[in-house]
């Protein structure tokens, strides 16, 4: 009990520190006091409110979405290597987004939410495709089968995206930059575009926190405990896809956040989803804010895609988890 309270305290402190660093560090140093100091330098206020703040908030929302979605996917599939990226869900969302951009789709019903809505649809379709195929291959859906299926689907969808990009011809560099993941130059409209999805998606997952705990012991056992497994699964898939779709729509595919954050959180504070989900949400936000800070400052003035940074951290962690899983299973 005490451990989880400590977890929340640490997560909040890190988040506040990350936001502070995120808004104050950059090519122009902006003191944090600008936030509340009305008499501050107007240029600084402008940089902070128009450029830095939306960027930090967006990075935070994207990180939080990917991390909580990753935690939920891992619990649902009982697979520590599952996350929106490794499962190919991000690629699905990318296809949804690229298709929307490519055909210039805009629907009056969705308005500004057209892009995230189509991303979410892409994510959901990819997720269902991966799960259906993995189940077809191997009823027990072993860890390796699922990841392999994710790679197959990812590669195929990646090729599809490349094809679409090649057909567009222009603005190649920009789309590629987007694909590698970035939260630069987005501004408040993007924040507005995604926050409802982040909120609803996270809420759907949080509603299923106990069901996720039960499903860690297998669907059969969860059923015996009185879980409506079918309903929970659908809600979790929709919630996860919504979050992934939202994240990808505004930032492209950023890998490994959904893998690293839940893993670390679980290691430190346990596998109980009642706390794992909110803690992953907070820590995911912090991680991506910090990663974005690195991405834009490390070889300043050039900006790295944020996906480069997360992959640099994420791939070794992925290897480590895989190594550990195989070793303990072999033992």
């Amino acid at each position: 009990m005490k451990k989880t309270i400590l977890g929340y305290i640490i997560a909040f402190v890190i988040l506040i520190v990350s936001i502070w660093l995120g808004v104050s560090i950059g090519s122009v140093k902006v003191p944090i006091s600008t936030l509340w100091n009305t008499a501050a330098d107007p240029t600084a206020t402008n940089i902070l409110w128009k450029i830095r703040m939306p960027r930090v908030v967006l990075a935070g929302l994207v990180g939080a979405s990917l991390a909580i979605a990753g935690a939920a996917f891992q619990g649902l599939l009982k697979n520590p290597l599952a996350d929106p990226y490794t499962l190919g869900v991000s690629s699905g969302a990318s296809v949804g987004a690229v298709v929307t951009l490519f055909f210039g789709i805009s629907t009056p019903i969705f308005g500004i939410y057209t892009l995230p809505a189509f991303s979410m649809l892409g994510a959901l379709l990819a997720m269902m495709g991966v799960m259906a195929f993995a189940r077809l291959v191997d009823r027990t859906m072993k860890m390796e089968t699922l990841i392999l299926t994710g790679i197959i689907v990812s590669s195929f969808l990646g090729a599809l995206i490349s094809l679409l990009i090649a057909l567009t011809g222009d603005e190649l560099r920009q789309i590629i930059g987007w694909l590698m993941g970035s939260v630069s130059m987005r501004g408040w409209p993007y924040v507005k575009m995604v926050w409802p999805f982040v909120l609803i998606g996270s809420f759907l997952l949080w509603l299923n926190r106990r069901e996720l705990n039960a499903m860690l012991f297998g669907e059969e056992r969860a059923k015996y405990l009185g879980v409506d497994v079918k309903k929970s699964k659908i809600l979790i898939l929709i919630g996860g896809s919504m979050l992934t779709g939202a994240a990808v729509a505004v930032s492209g595919t950023i890998g490994f956040v959904g893998l690293v954050v839940p893993h670390m959180t679980r290691l430190l504070f346990g596998a109980d989803h009642r706390h794992l989900l909110p803690l992953s949400f907070l820590n995911g936000a912090s991680l991506l804010i910090v990663c974005d800070l690195f991405a834009r400052t490390i070889i300043s003035p050039t900006e790295l895609p944020i996906g480069v940074i997360t992959a640099l951290i994420g791939a070794p962690v992925f290897s480590y988890i895989f190594f550990r899983q195989r070793r303990t299973k072999g033992a």
Binding site: G75, N79, P80, L216, G218, E220, R266, G270, A271
Partner: peptide, 14 residues
């Protein structure tokens, strides 16, 4: 049911 392996670990109490 019969005992199965599981991926993540809860405590006994949980």
């Amino acid at each position: 049911p019969q005992l199965h392996a599981h991926a993540f670990s809860h405590t006994v109490r949980e």
